[in-house]
Design a protein around this nucleic acid. Structure first.
Lengths: 383, 383
DNA sequence: GTTTCGAATGTTATCGATAACAAATGTTGT
DNA sequence: ACAACATTTGTTATCGATAACATTCGAAAC
């Protein structure tokens, strides 16, 4: 009880001096530390934090009983639990999951790797995952690969050191070493946002090629024939490549020729790049009357560039996107797109992972499942 | 060496059957598992993974030497290290950071809490942080609070169980219990995106009120007088509230009256909500000739709604945003906004955290610093 | 009243690494 | 050649929790 005295000591919290003029319009980014104010940092001292043994001693029970009092289904009498929780509150004990995990061999982590978190599709998926996992007290270790399979490999290796109980990946392309690491990790893996031909384990996704194909059909139904495609230079973004492949396949199936493709920059291709791409497209193939963009963001860039150049959308050229980002719903004209429930991909992946973990732990043999997520072409003003 | 045999056994990876028609345009989100394919899941078996002791035995050295061979600055002979790394590669040993951290009392984690990851400002900050931290092998545990201080408190409590070596927070408002938890955690804390009056510890941010004030000045310089403000209903998003306060202060300082404020929905306020808000604004105060929006996203919604209604921007009404999102650069008219280097906030926070950790570990007394990040009004077509 | 059983609690070993100290080996200077 | 020291390696204790088994105690069953 004496142990933590002094650590929580009150420190003077000086009021910040204000300088309302600083930084008002002008100057480049600047940052200067001014260590001249006097918040105390005593609380950062390296005194040992209370452990379960401290709680045990102070409450008069054994450490094991304390441990049980903190678990849900454990057999502890109500009065005991109450007393223990009282002590915990009093001394501010915070359990150390690191130690617990080492002993129980359950880290409480799930790892998820996405290409980038700065894309509402993937961040929605991450939210779905978090929601599914947090119900069971699992934490999400999130990493982003920047669309690089090399970085993915590094991340997989780094994450596995935390002994995650499962891993969620985006897409079906991984380096050889990554696949080896995953296999010897011996944990459930779920690949998402894709339907890989040779999955590592389980899958929650959809066929990007089919979605793209569906969009071509939609445009053809509405009378467009000279349909172009705008995407990033591939081999990094395999989902983008699949969409392009689906476009090409559909064009040839429908006897509409080879199609017109502008590839541009490294993924994710930005709004600005979409604008540049449409200019190039129209210059090279003036007959193009519709374009499919690899994502809504580039589609939006296309439309804004058309505005600038006085090309009416969809009059001069129709524009379709992918992903149903908020901007495509809100912009004018609103953008025809392929909608996929990104949040749901995460939620389903999380739930599948949980049930798989449960079943493995129960000793069942789990046959890897593939959960197909529906997509849908949403027709809006831009086509 | 025999131990891990069989775990890496080759399993049949059956090719997925394809069904290209499924999901083509129509139907609501559906997901059905089809566990009828035959990927093997043998590799998921619960055999024990190799440990450092295994590496030690197979290489003929002690576990301690293996541990040193994996550290950077440790004294091991070149041949020894080579031999050990060979064994590690051969048996596929992956170190367990959990165990290492327990022993060394360094978890290798930093926690960051943001309001939402689905906002490029915060995800950029998260990227900056990751970049700063990964140089030192630290991993980021990311959580999102949904703009709720209650959820923040829960997350802080949950994250502290992982014994992070530092924590990055967004904003300066925290519950009492959260502050207590942070103090007794005795680790460096950095609050970002704000300049709190009573910081917990260190700060990397800017004054949202001042930024907003600067925007009012910008509009006034350009001749606007009836300036309105559109934001979310406050008390959750304190940065949004600060921006509103700065707006109100500037209006009254400049003798432009109390201003006209539309508050709308819970933050983050969306593009759609921005559209609804401007309609309400113009109906209620037709004399308004300029609006400042709490973020670029709502500003974009405003502009699109103006398009729809035939109100020219900036002719009928000028529009300003906040945050310099990509959409504001690319849309037409492009949006005048306040630009803040979000990535830099993360990078600086990460570096400050690292140096603080170093100095504390070296036994130095660290005076909490405040790093001010510059912001800048960027004038574009919408004003 | 004894037996039986189940709930509540305690004891000991262990998870997989690293710190701290100890020992062995090699190297340099005179 | 030998002290003095640096480099490399090994030993033991430990981090903070939980698993597995052992024990205690009281209530129900006969």
């Amino acid at each position: 009880m004496a142990q933590q005295d002094g650590r929580l000591g009150q420190e003077g919290m000086a009021t910040e001096e204000k300088d309302p003029k600083t930084g008002t319009a002008g100057g480049t980014m600047r940052a200067d530390g001014n260590p001249d104010d006097s918040r105390g940092s005593l609380f950062r001292s390296n005194l040992p934090r209370p452990t379960m043994a401290d709680v045990a001693r102070l409450s008069g029970f054994s450490a094991m009983t304390v441990s049980r009092a903190l678990k849900d289904g454990a057999s502890v009498s109500a009065t005991t639990r109450e007393r223990i929780l009282g002590v915990i509150e009093e001394i501010g004990y915070v359990p150390d999951l690191t130690a617990g995990g080492l002993s129980s061999k359950r880290s409480g982590f799930i790892t998820a790797l996405v290409p980038t978190i700065n894309n509402s599709n993937f961040s929605d998926t991450a939210c779905g995952l978090t929601d599914a996992l947090s119900e069971r007290g699992l934490q999400l270790l999130l990493g982003y690969t920047d669309y690089s399979s090399g970085r993915e490999e590094e991340l997989i290796s780094a994450m596995l050191r935390r002994r995650p109980e499962g891993m969620i990946l985006t897409g079906g392309f991984h380096t050889e070493r990554a696949r080896r690491l995953l296999e010897s990790a011996a944990i459930p893996i779920i690949e998402t946002w894709d339907l890989p031909e040779a999955p590592v384990d389980q899958v929650v996704g959809f066929s990007n090629a089919d979605a793209s194909r569906a969009m071509v059909h939609h445009l053809v139904e509405r009378g467009y024939r000279n349909i172009g495609f705008i995407g990033g230079s591939s081999n990094r973004d395999t989902r983008g490549a699949d969409r392009r492949a689906g476009y090409e396949a559909a064009m040839s199936e429908l006897g509409l020729g080879e199609g017109h493709i502008i590839t541009f920059g490294t993924p994710p291709i930005s709004m600005e790049q979409g604008g540049q791409a449409i200019a190039q497209m129209i210059e090279q193939w003036p007959e193009v009357d519709a374009v499919i963009c690899v994502s809504d963001l580039s589609a939006f860039g296309v439309i804004m560039e058309c505005h600038r150049r006085g090309w009416s959308v969809p009059g001069r050229v129709a524009v379709a996107g992918f992903g149903d980002f908020e901007v495509s719903r809100c912009c004018w004209p609103s953008i025809t797109t392929v909608t996929v429930n990104s949040y749901d991909i995460g939620k389903q992946a999380g739930e599948l992972l949980l049930s798989t973990i449960d079943r493995i732990r129960a000793g069942e043999e789990v046959a890897p499942a593939t959960v197909k997520i529906d997509f849908k072409v949403v027709s809006r003003e831009s086509t």
